[in-house]
Amino acid sequence: MSATISFSAQLINLFAALILLLAFAMLAQRRVMQLINLFAYQGLALCLSTLVVAVSTGQTHLYWSAGLTLLLKALLLPWILHRLVRRLQVKWDVESLINIPTTMLVGIGLVIVAFNVAHPISELSSTITRGTLAIALAVVMLAFLMMITRTKAIPQVVGFLAMENGLFLAATSATYGMPMVVELGIALDVLVGAIILGVFFFQIREQFDSLDIRHMERLKDN
């Protein structure tokens, strides 16, 4: 990119980089509560970057998306998760199938892949946010990695929600956001999904006395 990059574009890139950094931090985080906090910060950074895009492009519906993100991803969902963790008295530390340094290395590999895949598309884009599409894809892939490597139910869900964050960033960076009706629908699905998961946690715990999903490996083909 050229040196004449505008201030707002620099701000957007800064927030996108922050989101990516937070995705890595989540990958490395061993404690459940801090993991949820990191997820809340990621939601906040996402909200701020959407807000900057909204101000610099004058797209009014992006103000609504930014508000929705703040409410849902930065406040409501972390609050629900915090309550769940306390109510369920989950053990504090998170176990990972692969050790953390290896996970981080795999994560770096994924980021490189994401940048390669997204490059031809960013070239086509005319939005001021086009540089962030690659970051968005990277965030999605890192969240995916987190879901695969974690063995407890709650980190898996945080991974799932972080993936949603990445997708939202992709939507704002490639196209200035999806049409409003779609965005509302997605938000509704995420919220209902989180509530159903909450119900589900209690069922799992009642049955297994733990939220470790390694107990749930009985269904096999043999």
């Binding site: 049955q207 749930m216 009985r218």
Partner: peptide, 9 residues
Amino acid sequence: SASLEAAWK
């Protein structure tokens, strides 16, 4: 337990 596992998956 089996049905919970299936639903989670």
